[in-house]
Design a protein around this nucleic acid. Structure first.
Length: 622
DNA sequence: AAAAAAT
């Protein structure tokens, strides 16, 4: 069984600690001479690590002029005092070794290519060979618009945002990977969320679809694991002890997060493993046995692994829930509660918990606060900006006319040339059966389509997604399994063939287009059956400066409050900390009392609407 | 009522 980097550094850390330089309570501080110490079986057979475990950014300047908010000596919850209140001793105390030798993280490939195997290059061979087409991919984000993003934060002592990756001391290896990913500047959610996470704080973050949330929680986790000193994880038996857990609601999303996290952690020695259902468990078990620092998983398979005692959550320092509102809704909440509260995971306040989603209904926030400790709420709206970049259309289409109407759209697209490899069409339907039958019908009518839904085998699902992404099958018919999080470049058109019942689901679905600065089109087929959505939909479209058909407004006016469980309150920028409302309710109209030290900042986007989200323009995102 | 998530 191989182990991961965090284990091996702990061994070295013990040596360093013996030299008396570490303030942290790292691994056993007994003094042992280097390398003559006991080497656990899983670490034997490795060439001795001769270089000191000195971090690249050895101790030096945090290029941040705000005292008190520098990059903390990570692992702060474990290695030192909680950093969220009165912090001290930031100057890199707790960093490993004083070796000023500037040996970078990337010098120490953490056992990866020292062993038999070499870490596969997650960037592929074509990193630099990619034509300009992909070059646009990551640089195409409309950064100018970033200056105008409304941002709301609340909570105690909110660390200020950064403007560049360089301001954050993420370490050489991670910086390299950021370059390889062609990330030039942090996105707004990254600018705010990364300093918050690096400060060790719990976080509830709302940020638009396609705005870089994955990196926002991965970077601090990876950096924390690299910098942290962790007690030697138990070994033996067949149980593994990841340091970080990332949960997501669908298998494909977990895969995607895993792929991204692998890029971010390339040559850092931090090991990322994914586990999800529908796939043979044996390969996943083998992957785990080779060592895991970050485990990405769907809930069901994780519970399975926990019950088999193949995974223990005892050493979890970081817990991230992607699509957190989904993870805590009725379908998932019991499982999540079991994983987080009834297994062996350290309690909140001990681990660091981060929740991310584009939408965060108030009642889910209330639930979520069970898992958080003194957290910061962050809402970043109108990124670059998805809603602006998505043109939303609603058409009145009778149930019986939907197919022919879709056919008209597809023919028009074909005529336009907006069809094919670089203009994919994603069609959402309500049911799995409906997905199959629509797919069949499309194929019969000369439109190559495939489908993804929960009745298909995992192999079929993944094949469908690949075929769609590659443009081989430029039409994908999907249930809500594909509504959230999936990053599929070149989706030019999202068709809500059947509208969802909940406006948040609509938000996530249309967010499959208009990503990373690209424009997109979203067309919805509306009829009587959707009248409960009319009001929320029309409000949403208004907020996004979309043209609302008169007939929809009439529906909206007629229909009672609907739009699913969470009505948007007054059409404001939805990203709002429910604690504020709660506090306001308690303080009985205190109005100005900013109990939680809230802090609203915005650029020019608001124009004459100082500090408020109550104006005509707001965002869909909550 | 549907979808997702373990076997």
């Amino acid at each position: 069984m191989r182990s991961s980097w965090a284990d091996s550094v702990t061994n070295s850390a013990a040596d360093t600690a013996a030299a008396g330089s570490s303030a942290n309570n790292g691994a056993g501080s007994t003094s042992r001479p280097a390398r003559t110490s006991y080497v656990p079986p899983h670490l034997r057979n490795r060439p001795p690590s001769s270089e000191p475990p000195a971090p690249a950014h050895s101790g030096t300047s945090v290029s941040n002029d705000r005292p008190g908010y520098g990059v903390p000596p990570s692992g702060n919850r474990w290695g030192g005092p909680r950093s969220d209140l009165g912090r001290s001793g930031f100057g890199g105390g707790g960093r490993l070794g004083g070796g000023g030798g500037g040996s970078g993280w990337n010098n120490r490939a953490g056992g990866w290519d020292r062993g038999k195997e070499r870490e596969a290059n997650p960037f592929g061979d074509d990193v630099d060979a990619e034509p300009a087409f992909n070059e646009q991919e990551n640089t195409g984000i409309n950064f100018d618009a970033y200056e105008d993003i409304p941002v709301e934060t609340s909570g105690e002592n909110v660390p200020p945002p950064v403007n560049t990756f360089a301001e954050i001391d993420l370490g050489e290896a991670l910086n390299q990977n950021i370059k390889r990913c062609k990330y030039v500047k942090p996105t707004p959610v990254q600018r705010h969320a990364i300093p918050i996470s690096l400060a060790g704080r719990d976080l509830m973050a709302c940020a638009q679809t396609g705005s870089g949330k994955t990196a926002a929680f991965c970077f601090p986790i990876i950096s924390g694991i690299m910098n942290g000193q962790f007690a030697q994880r138990p070994h033996g038996a067949r149980t593994v002890y990841p340091l970080a857990l990332i949960l997501s609601p669908t298998r494909e999303l977990s895969c995607q997060i895993h792929e991204e996290a692998r890029k971010f952690s390339y040559q850092t020695g931090v090991r990322v493993v994914v586990a999800y259902g529908g796939a043979p468990i044996n390969q996943q078990l083998r992957d785990l046995e080779r060592g895991v620092d970050i485990l990405v998983a769907t809930p069901g398979r994780l519970v399975d692994l926990l019950e088999r005692a193949r995974v223990s959550l005892q050493m979890i320092r970081y817990l991230a829930l992607d699509e957190a509102d989904r993870m805590l809704d009725m379908g998932f909440e019991p499982q999540i509660r079991k994983i987080v509260e009834q297994m062996d995971m350290p309690p909140r306040g001990v681990r660091q918990t981060m929740l991310f989603s584009a939408t965060f209904p108030k009642e889910i926030q209330r639930l979520a606060s069970d898992f958080l400790s003194n957290y910061i709420f962050l809402a970043v709206g109108r990124v670059g900006s998805s809603t602006d970049l998505i043109v939303q259309r609603v058409e009145f289409v009778l149930e019986s006319d939907k197919r022919s109407h879709l056919m008209d759209l597809l023919h028009a697209q074909r005529a336009n040339g907006t069809h094919g490899k670089q203009a994919l069409t994603l069609v959402f339907v309500e049911t799995k059966k409906g997905a199959d039958s629509l797919e069949h019908w499309l194929c019969m009518n000369g439109f190559p389509a495939t489908t993804i839904h929960g009745d298909r085998t995992q192999q079929e699902r993944e094949q469908a997604l690949r075929s769609f992404k590659s443009g081989n099958t430029p039409i994908l018919v999907a249930t809500d399994v594909a509504a959230r999080g999936l990053d599929i470049p070149h989706v030019a058109h999202v068709v809500n063939f059947d509208l969802p019942n909940d406006i948040d689901d609509y938000v996530h679905r249309i967010g499959r287009t208009g990503r990373a600065g690209k424009t997109g089109l979203a067309t919805a087929f509306f009829n009587e059956n959707n009248s409960s959505l009319a009001r929320a939909l029309s409000e949403l479209m208004q907020e996004a400066n979309q043209e609302v058909p008169a007939w929809l407004s009439r529906y909206a006016a007629r229909s009672s409050y609907g739009g699913g469980r969470n009505r948007r309150t007054g059409g404001r920028f939805g990203g709002r900390d429910f604690r504020r409302d709660a506090a306001a309710a308690f303080s009985r109209g205190g109005g100005g009392t900013d109990y939680y030290g809230g802090n609203i900042s915005s650029g020019g986007a608001y124009g004459s609407n100082p500090g408020g989200y109550g104006g005509a323009y707001t965002s869909a995102w909550d």
